[in-house]
């Protein structure tokens, strides 16, 4: 049993830290790939910009001065989508539920927040941009590790992870769409360097190599990032976790009218579990991925209606 507001905050901490981590990783890869002045390096950088939804950014300008573009993505206080804003929001939520998370977990996040918002942050970033971003990623791993190792694996922890996996599923789906779907604009990702970059963007390179070896193929990439059961960023892995946490969370409450989040999650997990590459090949990746994203949004809404913003008259004590 926990306050609905607390569950809401924990869920958003999960979403924000996952978003911050993903954006840091994409930015870091963009910076390291533009060092090569090749077409495929350029392609990787464009994928990053599109995957982050930076449609208003002029790609030519960003490519001429990538450090400046990444600085805006990382440290812009005014931009709600920046890494800094995500971390500030995560930390603000954590402060609201300070009594519900362990000191170890809180201090990890607070330390990171203080560092990235300090007046020295910009200078530290400009001196070593990729190093700065890698450190933020490492700190976020420490945060997740501290949460795993010190928080009770009860309701609060599940809401936190529910946020992480829902966000992750949507972010990876978006990334796959700009690589392989309609958003790729007909570009075929068949050049080795760009393929490597994309795998790194999803933290998939090493797990992928272990399964398929170094001969990278587009169909293997799609299959792996969508359907691999063990790689922790595959859509299948994420949806299995979402289902697992929602099953645990929903088991103790009486269902309300309307869509039940655990049922929606089970349906998504089953669909992904039993799908294969042919299904993608037949309809195109975009259709499939759009469906995943839409299902995630529906789960999000159902979570709210069930646990957070339920109508009071439905949940009066007996």
């Amino acid at each position: 049993m926990m306050l609905a507001r607390v569950a809401d905050s924990l869920y958003w901490i999960g979403r924000y830290i996952e978003r911050a981590e993903h954006f840091c990783r994409l930015s870091e890869i963009m910076l390291s790939s533009v060092v090569d002045q090749t077409d495929s390096a350029r392609q990787a950088a464009l994928i990053v910009l599109r995957a982050m939804g930076e449609d208003d950014v002029d790609p030519e300008a960003a490519l001429r001065y990538p450090v400046g573009a990444v600085r805006d993505i990382a440290l812009d206080r005014e931009e709600p989508g920046s890494v800094l804003s995500s971390l500030a929001a995560a930390r603000e939520n954590a402060r609201q539920v300070r009594d519900q998370i362990t000191t170890e977990t809180w201090e990890r996040l607070n330390m990171l927040y203080l560092r990235i918002t300090s007046p020295q942050a910009e200078m530290a970033f400009l001196q070593n941009p990729t190093g700065f971003l890698q450190e933020v990623i490492a700190d976020l791993h420490l945060f997740k590790g501290a949460a795993d190792a010190t928080m009770s694996h009860g309701e609060g922890w599940r809401f936190l992870l529910l946020g992480v996996y829902l966000e992750r599923a949507q972010l990876i789906a978006r990334l796959l769409d700009v690589c392989f779907g309609d958003a790729a604009g007909g570009y075929v990702l068949n050049e080795h360097f760009a393929q490597l970059s994309v795998l790194r963007m999803a933290c998939a390179l090493e797990p992928y190599l272990r399964v398929y070896g170094a001969e990278i193929e587009q169909r293997h990439m799609i299959t792996f990032m969508l359907f691999d059961p063990d790689y922790p960023r595959s859509i299948r892995f994420c949806s299995a976790r979402i289902e697992e946490h929602l099953n645990a969370l929903a088991s103790s409450i009486a269902p309300l009218d309307g869509p039940k989040p655990d049922r929606l999650a089970g349906r998504l997990a089953a669909r992904v579990e039993f799908a294969d590459y042919d299904e993608i090949a037949e309809h195109g990746a975009s259709v499939y991925l759009a469906n995943v994203v839409a299902e995630c949004s529906r789960i999000h809404e159902a979570v709210y209606e069930t646990f957070v913003a339920y109508p009071l008259e439905e949940r009066l004590p007996a």
Binding site: M1, A4, A7, E155, V308, R315, P317
Partner: peptide
């Protein structure tokens, strides 16, 4: 509600 105070939890209202 009915002169009782409840908090909104994830599992409904709690006294």
């Amino acid at each position: 509600h009915d002169n009782m105070v409840y908090m909104r939890t994830t599992r409904g209202l709690r006294r």
